[in-house]
């Protein structure tokens, strides 16, 4: 079991966004989070990534790679320099093979600022591969992408899962992934009467 979460409450600021979340993730599995805007998909992903609280680490049993709404691409560095930086951070040696897998060779010396949205997303995917992490957490990875690039993203994810990884992905689009299960996150919406804020308790 890579992730085994039971009864997790996620807050943003003081507000309880989703309550009593239970989910587990096994090797090779891909979990897709569905729900309307503001239902807490991002909050949940950030929680699992450890950005909102530190003590989540006990529930997650493998390395994670997180990709948020932004790619983390530096526009004044070339594609290669961007990837070299992340390879240095994760001390990984698969830089060349990642570049080959994602067909980035011809973009090698281009400034990242000149890339199109799809190319930037490819660069973001390359970062995920470089981390060598087992679990991928991706927040809306296909937003503003055309069909071909969406295809590329879902291929990369299913490839990753086949090689023994796992992923949790929030998306509105149907990604057409094998071995995936869908988790409707609206079911975790806190009940109207739950105490969500210490300042609402009591009367004064």
């Amino acid at each position: 079991m890579l992730i085994n979460i039971e009864n997790l409450d996620c807050r943003r600021g003081n507000k309880l966004i989703i309550a009593n979340v239970s989910l587990c993730l096994k090797t090779g599995e891909c979990l897709i989070l569905k729900g309307p805007n503001g239902s807490g998909k991002t909050t949940l992903l950030r929680h699992i990534a450890g950005l909102n609280s530190k003590n989540i680490n006990d529930l997650v049993n493998a390395d994670i790679a997180y990709s948020g709404h932004l790619d983390g691409v530096k526009s004044t560095l070339t594609v290669y320099e961007n990837l070299q930086f992340w390879a240095g951070i994760y001390k990984s040696k698969n830089l060349e093979s990642v570049i080959k897998t994602l067909n980035l060779e011809n973009l090698y010396t281009r400034m990242a600022g000149e890339l199109s949205a799809g190319q930037k997303r490819r660069l973001g995917l390359a970062r995920m591969l470089i981390t060598n992490a087992k679990i991928w957490l991706m927040d809306e990875p296909t937003v503003s992408l055309d069909q071909a690039t969406t295809r590329l993203v879902s291929d990369a994810i299913s490839n990753h899962c086949q090689k023994g990884g796992a992923a949790i992905i929030s998306t509105h689009v149907d990604l057409d992934l094998p071995e995936s299960s869908v988790l409707d996150i609206t079911q975790f919406k806190p009940h109207k009467d739950t105490k969500t804020d210490p300042f609402l308790e009591g009367t004064f």
Partner: peptide, 12 residues
């Protein structure tokens, strides 16, 4: 440290 309790005590 609970706001409601603090309000009650401080009022007194």
């Amino acid at each position: 440290a609970n706001p409601a309790k603090f309000m009650a005590l401080s009022a007194r």
